[in-house]
Amino acid sequence: MESVIEISRLTKYFRSGIRGILVRALNEVSFAVRRGEIFGLLGPNGAGKSTAIKIMLGLLKQNSGECRIFGEKIGEKTKSKIGYLPEAPNFYGFLTAKELVKFYAQMSGMRSADAEISAENALSLAGLSDCQDRPLSTFSKGMLQRAGLAAAVAHDPELVILDEPNSGLDPIGMSDMKDLILRLKASGKTVLICSHMLREVEQICDSVAILYKGEVAAFGALDEILGRNSEALIRVKNPTEKFFGAVEKSAAEFGADLKVEKGGGSLADFFNKIVFERRGK
């Protein structure tokens, strides 16, 4: 499948302090995001996720390596196909939600009349139709996040980059955000999510890359890295020890080496395993 984002051996250094000591934010990072998938860019704080996103958006320049979006280097043309929701977005408080979304749609190259219609549609999608004429200064954090998402998708981008989309959202808001992201995928868009909410990421992502201290610690399809293709997971409510024994005995009769354990591996378990392993290195 065609790659929308191709990151190849990306390295980025920052100068820190008065003496300008070089700090490595990304070290030979490589991964690819395929068209139409939901991709999770994960990692603990300081792993280099935001740096990678900023390089993808052309806000930072890498020291070495390559970043291609839609097969091209980042530029005006590629930027018009990207929608971006920053972490904890801070918008002009004096604008109404509709003015904000229209403004960003126009900044992405839409005409005023088209931008107005798109703004209304995007706000409706984000569940903000009722308060589209209210100034953003009166919005809660969760509402700002929704307005930010509306601004990110109003110009109908092919690639949507969401930096911590669940930040500041209550459980209902998170559920709505998950539905919105799945709707984006259903409409053929590629979505890159940068998040700490592993449970939500696990539910919606097709592939993930886990960054740790500027390096890729794991990358691949979620089913593959969690071993879902080589193992089967059977969920049983109220299992008893007698049940476990009976299932194992009957599997042995069919020649299967079955080990029944309570619970199951999750992305959170996998993430913690990877991070603790790296720390131990």
């Binding site: 052309g58 806000l59 005006e76 971006y84 920053p86 977005p89 960003y104 992405s108 190259g109 601004a151």
Partner: peptide, 14 residues
């Protein structure tokens, strides 16, 4: 400081 510049410059704005 408010990162509105980042949001703006992530668009096709020179």
């Amino acid at each position: 400081e408010n990162r509105t510049a980042a949001t703006l410059l992530a668009r096709p704005v020179s």
